[in-house]
Each structure stands twice: as structure tokens, then as C-alpha cells.
Amino acid sequence: MLISMPPPTSAAFHTTRWSRVVLAREPSAQGQEALQQLCAAYYSPVISFLRREGRQEDAARDLAHDFFAIVLAGRAINHAEQSRGRFRSYLLGAVKHFLSHQREAALRLRRGGGETPISVDDEETPALADPAQISPDEAFDREWAHTVLARAMEALRQEQAAEGKGDAFARLQPWLSGEAAHGDQAALAESLGMNVNTLKAATHRLRQRFRALVKAEIAVTLDDDSAVDEEMQVLFSALRSR
């Protein structure tokens, strides 16, 4: 089953914490939309997890499509319990469970348990992981962190565009993402009709709003606010992974 995932930078993901997961369980148009959004947010992390296990890009995408087909059919999301607290952790466990079932099914076929036995060589076996590289779990978390930042940045861009500040934001964005730490602020300030101090103040406000949007993005799939700061630390740690 081929699944078309929306871009991970879609800003239509914000709502109140775990209620998004609860809504995604409902057999309604709103529930299906919430489920699509949850899958879109975690599509890239799942691909990264599968790739880090040693699978080729096409094989990883095929497996991800199969996995999310089950999720979208409603046969997995019902097991996401609020008491577990973090949808990120639940989904990673669900992917591992899915892969375990895949391996068991393949093993049964090899032993003649199915109508069409297959050769061991017929299935692509993941290569052994390079110990110098990050683990599949770390790859999942790192891609999750990048996705969270991208979605928060897109939400901020849309906010600024709605206020008629889209052009200024586009030029200030490198200072928010750290891509222009040593750029010429004086020249940028002049081009925007500001002095340097005003530019610094505007950049500081945008950074604060960006951080708030990152927290809001994380809070979507948590059961309470107390876990947000802990998840922020997971995000920062994931971004620092080698």
C-alpha cells in the first residue's frame, strides 16, 4: 500500500498534548486527519531508524509504508497509552514490534509454514551496523529532533508571513538556525532599515518565539507539561549525537 506523506514541515500539527493521540484513535474525519498528521511528523524518523539498521533507501521506504499502512488502518494507534507518556517512545517501540513480526513471518516461510517457501537470499538482510556510527535508536531520535525544529521553524515563518514580515523573517532566519553566526549584522540591519541594536532585539524575540514553538511541538504528544523540558533535553542530546 503506497502512502503519500505530507511534508514534515507542515505547521498544522499544533494542539493540546496527548489529546492529539486520543483524537487519532477516533473513527472520524477529524481522527483520520490527526492520525495522518502524527504519521507525517514521524515518517522521517522511522526511515532514519530503518536506514541505520543497514537497509537500502528503497527497502527502508517500503517497510515504512507497510508500517504506516497498519498505523493508518487503526490497528496500532489504539495501543498508545497515555500512561506511557511519550508518543515518540511508543512509535519507536511499535516499529521494532512491526519488524519483529516481519522477521517471524519470513522465518515461517523459510521453514515451509507458508504456501510459497522462499530462499534466505530472497529477503534483504540488514548489514551489520558500523560501531563508529550512531545506533538506529539514536538515528530515530536525531531525525525526530530535526523534524521538530523544521516544523517549529515553519510555524514561525507562517506567523511572520501573516503579520506581513515574511521578507524580513527570511533574511533573519539564518541567525535563528545558527547558519549566520558570524555574518554582517550591520549590513543586514541597514538593509532592513534598522540599527544593529534593534536587529539584535528582533532576533532575540524570534529566537524566544521559536523556542516556544519547539516546546509546543513537543508537547503535542506528551501527557503533561512536566515532561516537556525532559524531552527538550532529549532533543538537544539527539542533535549532538555524532
Rank of each mutant, 00 (worst) to 15 (best):
A40K: 05
P7C: 13
A168G: 01
M1N: 09
F49A: 03
A155Y: 03
G193A: 11
A40D: 12
D184K: 06
L38H: 01
N78S: 09
F13T: 13
R61T: 11
D223C: 09
D184L: 05
L176W: 08
R88A: 09
D58A: 10
S177N: 01
A180Q: 07
D184Y: 11
L172Q: 00
D137R: 14
E230Y: 08
T125F: 15
G31E: 06
D58T: 14
K165R: 09
R61D: 07
A145Q: 07
V22E: 15
G113F: 00
A12S: 10
A181M: 14
R240T: 08
F140T: 01
T221L: 01
A238Y: 05
R211E: 11
V120D: 14
L222M: 01
Q36V: 13
A201E: 08
Q30C: 07
R108D: 12
W18Q: 00
R86Y: 11
G85M: 01
A187K: 10
L92T: 07
Q30E: 12
G183D: 15
S237K: 15
P174C: 04
D225L: 14
A94N: 06
P6S: 15
F49P: 01
E163K: 12
E57Y: 15
K200S: 08
L23Y: 02
R205P: 12
A145Y: 02
P136G: 02
F98E: 11
E57G: 10
R157K: 07
R205W: 13
A41T: 01
D122R: 00
D229T: 12
V228C: 03
A227Q: 06
S241Q: 15
F67E: 04
E138Y: 02
A201F: 11
L128K: 12
A29Y: 06
A127N: 05
A60C: 07
A180M: 08
W144Q: 05
A40G: 15
L50G: 02
E33Q: 12
P131F: 10
A212F: 15
A180C: 08
T125P: 14
L239V: 09
